[in-house]
Nucleic acid binder design. Sequence first.
DNA 1: CCCCTTTTCTTGAACAAGTCAAGAAAGCCG
DNA 2: CGGCTTTCTTGACTTGTTCAAGAAAAGGGG
Lengths: 142, 142
Amino acid sequence: MSATTDLEQVLRDAGLRVTRPRVAVLGAVRTLPHADTDSIIAAVRRDLPEVSHQAVYDSLHTLTGKGLVRRIQPSGSVARYESRVGDNHHHAVCRSCGVIADVDCAHGAAPCLTAANDHGFVIDEAEVIYWGLCPDCSTACS
Amino acid sequence: MSATTDLEQVLRDAGLRVTRPRVAVLGAVRTLPHADTDSIIAAVRRDLPEVSHQAVYDSLHTLTGKGLVRRIQPSGSVARYESRVGDNHHHAVCRSCGVIADVDCAHGAAPCLTAANDHGFVIDEAEVIYWGLCPDCSTACS
DNA sequence: CCCCTTTTCTTGAACAAGTCAAGAAAGCCG
DNA sequence: CGGCTTTCTTGACTTGTTCAAGAAAAGGGG
């Protein structure tokens, strides 16, 4: 069974219509984790040279809404997307070059959802971003 | 001693030139925690009607660089600023109305800086955003 | 107290990411 | 296969932010 068939099934299972742009966008996000929208557009156009940027934006929005991809956006960065969803993992972001790495939740399966004082908020997710320098940049600066 | 004199001293202690825009910007950030740039510009212009938006952007950038204010920018929001710095507190953000509340670090004085697997990153800060609904929106939606 | 150097502010244009809107095309159900 | 609904294309537009050049102001030395 081809990878495309697999992607189509994922879309169908989520109750979405199967369109060529959506299949390509989902495939691109899986191939390029943490890619920004421009990179995703470029990757999609390798398969479908004529897709509009709007179709990619729409697809990303729809896929995000259905929980098939996750949108992340550290301060000062444009929107990025990843297909690893449902496990509440976190991210390390390099202050120098902006590269992003996945980090498993430090507190095991039950995520760090307990705020000390929640001010009455109903919290459903705790997002953690670890800021620092990636291996390459930290050795380059020393 | 006036509040303005106090602000001037803070700027001087940070090694910055004291200018009217900077004093007004620092005062606005202290008065309006979590305000976006537009609100800060509006607040500053109540004192100094003629300041350019660029002066406010420059001042915010400079103050952020010196650690006198902190810039926060949850996904999908514009840049916001606060003057509570140096205590590694976190934020709760309402998914519905976007309001932001301060949340003390859940793990006491030593912040949650330990990533499970840091991939060789040199981490200097862990930023936590608690996503959910604020009291007003959670009661309105139920 | 005034001058000089450096920094900061004003003005105005430019930019990038993302959004809006109208009509054409394509997916899916019966 | 036909029709209804969703999605895609096209192209303009908004918003938040940055860039650049010259004018103004801060602060130290004489």
